[in-house]
Amino acid sequence: MALRVEEQEVIPGEVKVEEPGRCCPVCRKSFPGEPAAECRRYVEVRNITKGDCRLDNVEVGFCRGRCLSRTDVTLEEPYLQSLCECCSYRLDPVTPVRFLSLLCGSGQSEPVVLPVIHSCECTSCQGGDLSRR
């Protein structure tokens, strides 16, 4: 059985882009001078504190970057089109959280739960009219 890939037609004003985590390119409007979307996973060693309790040298992962967001007025319905994407995360499917014990000044321990971020990507987020907020 052969795998069939349909060629996507590029609409005028759009360009084919390859997105991380997708097997096939997608078409997006091109805006000259617009920065490219970049959402990446980073790892840092941090000290975790809660009140007088702490645990030093804990490796944590987090997402940081910029994604495409814009609002356009078009000449056809719908007259207002919004694209709002945020740099978001996927938890590790096998171990989504880590359980840690912080050491307190009193000699007690304080349990905390940290998310385990597997990957980061630009995903749709809420946008729109701010006048009602």
Rank of each mutant, 00 (worst) to 15 (best):
L3N: 06
E77A: 10
V112E: 01
P20H: 05
V73A: 12
R64M: 13
Y42W: 12
L3P: 00
L100V: 04
S82T: 13
P93H: 03
H118L: 07
K16Y: 11
S30K: 09
S69F: 09
R28L: 01
V97F: 15
V73P: 00
T71D: 07
R98P: 04
C125R: 04
P115T: 10
P96L: 08
P20G: 06
E85G: 05
G107F: 06
P93L: 03
P20T: 02
P78Q: 06
R70D: 10
K50Q: 12
C63M: 10
V116C: 00
V45H: 05
Y42I: 09
S69E: 14
G51W: 11
L83N: 14
A37E: 13
R41Q: 14
G128K: 00
C24L: 15
T123M: 05
F99C: 03
D52Y: 02
I11Y: 07
R132T: 06
V112F: 01
R46K: 14
C104N: 04
S69A: 15
V94L: 09
R22N: 08
G51Y: 13
D92Y: 08
L91E: 10
E59A: 10
L80R: 06
P25E: 04
C23Y: 09
R66P: 00
T95A: 06
R64E: 09
R22E: 13
E59R: 12
E34A: 15
Q108C: 12
E77T: 08
Q81Y: 01
C120I: 02
Y89H: 07
V60G: 03
F31S: 10
